[in-house]
Every structure is written in C-alpha cells, then in structure tokens.
Amino acid sequence: MRILYLHVPMAWLAMGGYVGLAIGSALALVWRHPLADLACRELSPVGAAVTALCLATGSLWGRPMWGTWWVWDARLTSVLVLFFLWLGHAALVRAFDDAERGARMGAILALIGAVNLPVVKFSVDWWNTLHQPASLTRLNAPALHVDILYPLLVCALGFSLAFAAVVLARTRAAVMERRVRALQMAAARRAEAEPRP
C-alpha cells in the first residue's frame, strides 16, 4: 500500500506530462513558439524518468502482490509504449544537427504518440487486465478511503511541483545555453570579419 503513494503520482505525471508535451509540440508546430521547442526538449528526459519510475515501482509492488515482476497485460504494455515514446522524443530532437528540424520531427512524434494516452487510460476497461481498474474516477465516488486518498493527493501535488520545478530549471538553463551559443557565434563571426595583419 505504501508504494501506491509513489506509483500513482508517477503514473499521473507520466500521462499529464505527455499531455503537456503534446500541447507544447502543437504550439511549436503551428505557432512556431521558440520557447515551446525548448520546453519540449527539456521535458522529455524528465517524462521518461517518471515513466521509468512508474514502471519500476509498479514492478516492485507487483512482485509480492501478483507473484511476478512483469506481465504483458494491456495497462503495463501501453505504459511501456509511453516510456518508449518519451525516450524516442528525447533521442529524436537531439539526433539532428539542425535543432529546428529535430524539434519539428520530435513534435510530430509527440502528436502521433498522443494516441497512446487514451489506450493507457482505458486499457483496464477495454481489456481484461491483471492491473486493477481506476480507483479514482470523475463520475463515481473514489474507491479509496479518505485516510489513503488525502495523503495520495498531497503526494501527487508534491511530486507535480517537483516535476514542474525540474522542467522549469532545465528550460531556464537551456535558454541560457542557447544565449551562450549565440554569443559565441557572434564572437566568431566578428573575429572572422576582422582584417588579418
């Protein structure tokens, strides 16, 4: 039960973060917002990390409860696909010499990958899975007792703030790195233009 306070917030962050990635990618593709590109680039490694934590904590919970570390059921497999999408995005945006082209390719991958989100969410309803159905739904009363529900919501809020802080710090550092590169290029151009003795 104690692992629930880690596993569930990680799962929410993995999915919520991917929604953020898809929105950022749409902003970058349609309106070509320069900060959206950068934020998506910095978001994907953090998203991959929380999805890996979701899978790892789920596995550590599953071993004593289900008697196995892993089963190829719909929920676990769709979250594994989500993990590969995060990793794929992180790798793709860094794979091109032209950063703008890499960002565009990454944005397309992120938008296509968003199809996986409803599959993750509804996999426990659409297929017969070993993973239990959602305990918290918008329409029904929560299946969790308040003694468990409130600490879970506090944990989710805390991890969400930590996630946002890490992404913002990485984006801020990336903005500064981009400025450093621009200044280095300008200095190199100035040095090239100067007449040699």
């Binding site: 692992i3 890996a52 934590l53 790892a56 890490v166 790195e177």
Partner: peptide, 30 residues
C-alpha cells in the same frame, strides 16, 4: 521493496534537480 521504491524515486528526483542546478550554474558562468 518499499525501501527500494522510495530510494529509487528520491535518487531520481535528486539527480534530476542536481543536474538542472549544475547545468544552470555552468551556463550562467559561461
């Protein structure tokens, strides 16, 4: 299993935070 889960999450978030702080410091210096 409980200890491993908490240690894993703590270590990952610490590493992410530390990595971001170090990157930010290096970029500010340059």
């Amino acid at each position: 299993h409980v200890t491993a889960s908490y240690a894993l999450v703590l270590a990952t978030f610490l590493a992410l935070g530390l990595g971001a702080a170090l990157r930010h410091r290096a970029a500010r210096r340059r």
